[in-house]
Amino acid sequence: MSEVLMRVEGLKTYFYTARGIVKAVDNVSFTLNRGEVLGLAGESGCGKSTTAYSIIRLVPPPGRIVGGRIVFEGQDILKMSSEEYRRKIRWKKISMIFQGAMNALNPVLSIGDQMAEVFMIHKGMSKKEALEESAKLLSMVGIDPKRLRSYPHELSGGMKQRVMIAMALALNPPLVIADEPTTALDVVVQAQVMNVLKKLQKEYKVSIILITHDLSLIAEIADKVAIMYAGKIVEFGTAEHIYLNPQHPYTRGLLASIPRIRGEIKKLEWIPGIPPDLVAPPRGCRFHPRCKYKFEPCDKEEPPMVEVEPGHYVACWLYAKR
C-alpha cells in the first residue's frame, strides 16, 4: 500500500507586479506518494518552477503564496513560520536541485567546504566528520572523493551537477525537487546524471519531483506525470496514462511535437500560438485559444478535473459532463 507523502491542495502563488497580478500557480492540487517520482511538465512560464519554489517556500518577491495547503507528512507546511520551516523542513525533509546548478556552487569555496557546511549547520558535526560524510556522498554520485579539494571551476558541468545532487541528498530527505537538472548538459552527461538519479531513487526510496519541459526526460524516471498549462494542471496520471493514452489536447500536442531518434519519422505537429499572459488569462479553459477541439463551453466556463480512468485525471470539456 502506498503511503501519501505530500498533498498539495488548491495551491495559489501570485506575483504582484506593476502590470497586475500574475497568477503563476492558480489552484494546483496533486498527491505524491512516498518513494514515487512525479514529473511536472509544461512550456516555459507555465508555473512549474513556481510550484517547486512554493513547496520549498522560496518564492522570490513580488511573489506570494496566497492560498491552498501543502500537507507534508501530515503537517501543513504553509502554516509554519519561515523560521520553523527552515529548521524543520528545508533540506532535512525537502531539498532541491536548482536549475543551472553549475552556477549555484560558490566559486571561491572548495567542493568539500561547501558540502561540509550542510552537515555542520544541520547536524552540528565537526569539520572533520562533515568532510568524511561529504566524501561518502561524493562516491555515492560517482565522483572520486579526492575531488573534495577541487574548486567548482575545476569540475565539468556534469560533475558539478552531481555535486548538487549529492548536496540535495545530504540529509536523507524524503523528497527532492529537481528543477531542470540537466539543462545545459550534453546528452551523454545528461544520461549519466539521470542514471545517478535513478539509482539513488531506487536505493534510498526518495520521492522526486522532476521539473522539465522535456517530456522525453520525464519518461526516463517518472511514475506519475502532471502536465501544467498557464498555471494549472490540465492532465495528471501514471506515466503509462500520459504517454500511451494522453487525453488532453495540450498533452497530445506536446507529445506529437517531439522528434524521435528511433522508429519511423512521423510528421511533427505543433501547438499554434503562445501561452497566455497570466495577468489576464483567457476566460474558461485557459488553453481554448490554442485548442483545435474548442467548442461551445470552452471559452465560458473552466472545465473541472474529471477522472477518465482510475488515477487518470483530465481538465477538459471533451470529457466533462455538464
Binding site: 546528452v187 539521470m194 542514471n195 517530456l215 520525464i218 519518461a219 526516463e220 506515466a239 517531439i258 528511433r262
Partner: peptide, 16 residues
C-alpha cells in the same frame, strides 16, 4: 544517450 518518450525507460538504467 538520447532519451525518448517511452515510459518503459524508467525501469532500466541506460548503459552508455
Amino acid at each position: 544517450a538520447v532519451p525518448d518518450p517511452d515510459p518503459k525507460n524508467r525501469f532500466r538504467i541506460r548503459e552508455i
